[in-house]
Design a protein around this nucleic acid. Structure first.
Length: 433
DNA sequence: TCTGGGGTCCTAGGACCC
DNA sequence: TCTGGGGTCCTAGGACCC
């Protein structure tokens, strides 16, 4: 029982959105596949075959027209309802087998296992990986470490080490050969410092300037220097690489601090009328999410921006936050305030590309109890909103909507290459024989 | 012609108070 | 022209994550 330890595992779906498309369209297997962002603008998921071609993440797709033609790359518009549903299936399998877990993103989940040997934890990971592939069809990689940051690093190595078969252990307990500090440093040397969890573009450039190129060098940095130059988050990363647990598993459903709805427009918007329609729709969507979370908002922010990539265009971005007279989740009230804000920040003569609605200063909708005096969000309004949400959930979003959301919507986003919503829309289900 | 969306946390600096 | 010190709170902006 000597080698019993506490481990963090990171289960990460490989090329998640592409893998989702492949589950329902097996002919895509071994083909180069790309999933695009809204408006079919940027690359947001790439198959291995695409990565090999050197097409980077977040690349604007129009810059790679030639490669797409030459290599017959299959393109898909993002199909988030499908990906969300597939994510829930993966997570529910993990939940069945893991004692404690934290869903970290749509395609990643941390697992915490106490009092287990190295062999057992690796066996557990292999079985879990196999089960997810078999039951949902999604390939995953699993990184195992004694901290979250080491589990992340192990996951990075799992994806790049063929012999690991998708499971990689990074442990520095020193009890076995593979867990010696020398071994860990060996592995971390293979990793660019910018690939460490928490080290972004700016910090990577700073570290490279100081001669720190790989994760092992980062791990051995002086604490005082790190705190001074990289502040608290940087020091936490260094400690975690050394095996000190700083980031715990966040187990509970944390309530959000803000809710955002923003979209880029498929073509530039110039009139206040169309901009107002877009903003209204974003506010309505944000308010819907607010009620799903059973929260009220007390601050609303509207932001509008021109296309910063068009250097020759006149540029203008502006935002304004206004506190609500009383916390509310009433779409009509929020729309009124939002339109008010918009008339204050809108300037004529610009080609707008993007707008955003943000609700913040959130509180539980039961926290005010009977203390809603002075609030326009009366029980009657609350009931009306609930009815609106029920209808839109049952019959599809925007079955009922506010007139100011507009009908024509020339700014609506483009999704020319979306796959069917196999798992969430009956009428789009295709039967394969 | 065409460049995503939704979040969190931290820090610095200003306002304000005694 | 000189003109404290310390604390708190808030906000904007930056950096990061997926």
């Amino acid at each position: 029982m000597k080698d019993v330890q506490t481990f963090f595992l990171l289960v990460d779906c490989n090329n998640f959105y592409v893998s989702c498309e492949r589950v329902f369209n097996p002919s895509l297997e071994d083909m180069p596949v790309i999933v695009l962002s809204n408006n079919d603008g940027c690359v947001i998921s790439r198959s291995d075959e695409v990565k090999v071609l050197g097409i980077p993440m977040a690349a604007p797709i129009f810059q790679y027209k030639n490669e797409i033609k030459l290599h017959n790359i299959k393109l898909f518009s993002a199909n988030f309802p499908l990906y969300g549903d597939m994510s829930r299936r993966v997570m529910s399998i993990v939940a069945r087998h893991a004692p404690k877990m934290e869903v970290y993103s749509i395609d990643e989940v941390f697992v915490h296992i106490k009092g287990i040997s190295h062999d057992r934890v690796q066996y557990f990971a292999k079985k879990l990986r196999h089960r997810i592939k078999k039951e949902v069809g999604i390939p995953v990689s699993i990184g195992i470490g004694t901290t979250k940051t080491l589990a992340k690093a192990a996951n990075y190595l799992a994806k790049r080490t063929v012999s690991s078969h998708g499971v990689f252990l990074l442990c520095s307990c020193g009890q076995t050969d593979i867990c010696s500090h020398a071994q860990i440093d060996n592995h971390l040397q293979q990793m660019d410092v910018g690939s460490v969890w928490g080290i972004g573009r700016k910090t990577r450039a700073f570290l490279h300037n100081h001669g720190i190129y790989n994760a092992s060098q980062l791990k051995h940095l002086d604490h005082a220097w790190t705190k001074r130059e990289l502040h608290k988050p940087g020091l936490e990363t260094v400690l975690e690489l050394q095996g000190v647990v700083v980031k715990k598993l966040e187990n509970l459903h944390k309530s959000k601090k803000s809710i955002i709805c923003s979209r880029s427009f498929s073509k530039p918007v110039t009139t206040l009328e169309h901009l107002s329609e877009a903003v209204t729709e974003f506010v309505a969507r944000a308010a819907e999410k607010l009620r799903e979370e059973h929260e009220l908002t007390s601050i609303i922010t509207i932001y509008i921006a021109t296309n910063r990539h068009r250097k020759h265009d006149k540029q203008y971005t502006q935002s304004l936050s206004i506190p609500m007279p009383a916390p509310t989740a009433d779409t009509a009230t929020l729309i009124k305030t939002a339109q008010n804000i918009l008339t204050k920040i809108y300037k004529q003569g610009y080609r707008y590309k993007k707008a955003l609605a943000m609700l913040s200063g959130l509180m539980r909708d039961d926290s005010l109890q009977d203390n809603l005096f002075g609030s326009s969000f009366t029980p009657q309004r609350k009931q009306l909103m609930a009815t609106l949400d029920t209808i839109n959930t049952t019959w599809g979003s925007n079955t009922l909507m506010f007139a100011s959301q507009g009908i024509a919507k020339p700014w609506r986003m483009k999704r020319a290459m979306r796959s069917p919503r196999y798992t969430t829309k009956w009428d789009e289900l295709v039967f394969v024989h």
